[in-house]
Write a protein that binds this DNA or RNA. Structure first.
Lengths: 195, 195
DNA sequence: GCGCCCATGTAACTAGTTACATGATTCA
DNA sequence: TGAATCATGTAACTAGTTACATGGGCGC
């Protein structure tokens, strides 16, 4: 199965909302979808160029008095069709690589206190993230019209469900680990038998 | 910040349980941590070699009558120290790239029926995954001794919390989307104002 | 004879990150 | 004067995936 360049579609999607420059787009992304999608300049700029080359976007150079030159890109009809085509394809599921869980899985190699510390730190991160989500929610709600489909709230809600679940898991895990607190000697089994 | 080669530690961690070959390790991984960590042969074999070169593992060639040759690797004391050193470092948080959410975020470019289909499919996937998790849970519980720290159950529980949360989010989202069912004309706003 | 499982590996590729280079303006 | 922000870009790198190559044994 041919791998698709997803940055391409992330960028195209952003342009479907309104024309913007690469720099603006990075900020837009960091304020909206950052909790499930990241992009960096090293990819945004080359992708914008290639979209232009392929006729999926057009570029206007915007020189304002005493400001750096901005390259503002707009999506074309062809670009919109290409975006829609991709949207209809089934979404590929990500391959998770969750380092915290990998470390926990091998946790018996070190003392339980170390693992407790990691889970506590994860819980703090969840709490912090949920707070910023609350602000994002307020922001979106103050901007939405009520007649549109609230896709921004929908994707945000995923994050809220996710971090609430991780927080609950942290509590459960801390409870479990505390029963073994103080045990010094690392064991070497894990509940999985011969594979 | 220097990037660490995480496959290296995944492999080292697996060897910390018992000596095994690359082929066995792949199966072990696919039966235990696959829901949060994947590895493929293209990385396992080269890493095993480099671990041996660096003295973190040793290799024995195992030739059984009428069977293919197996290269069985064992972790060394140096390897165990290197694993422990890594375990104590803070876990790096993954950069999520969840394509389903990216497509939903741009959902207003196509009809709502398409997005409903995607969310339904996600829900089915959650249900299916939770069922296989149940089997895994039974398997682990039948193998664990009760005196060890249940790290296998702990990492599994993360997955269970996660997929239950996503399932709930699917229900909530379907509810939301159904209110807009039948609306044909794609809109072009998303609840995010000027950034 | 065919397909599947065992078993080890390499090569080619795509994706993604980070560091660097440049230079102007604004604000403390 | 120095830091932060605006703004665009490239080069070098690491990570990760997929396809391919090889070959024996086993069951249908």
């Amino acid at each position: 199965m041919a791998k698709v360049n997803r940055t391409r579609y992330a960028v195209l999607g952003m342009l479907s909302f309104r024309p913007m420059s690469g720099y603006e787009m990075k900020k837009y992304i960091d304020n909206s979808i950052i909790h499930f999608w990241q992009e960096n300049f090293g990819r945004i700029y080359p992708v914008l160029r290639s979209l232009e080359r392929e006729g999926l976007a057009t570029k206007q150079v915007d020189q304002e008095e005493g400001r750096p030159v901005r390259h503002v890109y707009s999506i074309t009809e062809k670009g919109r069709r290409e975006l829609a085509r991709w949207l209809l394809l089934p979404a590929e599921r990500p391959n998770w690589r969750i380092e915290l869980l990998l470390k926990l899985f091998f946790g018996s190699q070190v003392s339980v206190a170390n693992m407790i510390r990691k889970v506590r730190s994860e819980k703090a991160f969840c709490r912090h993230t949920l707070e910023t989500f609350q602000q994002l929610e307020d922001h979106i709600k103050s901007h939405e019209s009520g007649t549109e489909i609230p896709y921004g709230l929908i994707t945000l809600s995923y994050g809220q469900h996710y971090y609430r679940a991780v927080e609950a898991w942290c509590d459960e895990t801390l409870e479990r680990l505390r029963r073994f607190e103080g045990e010094g000697e690392p064991a070497r089994s894990n509940g999985f038998g011969k594979q």
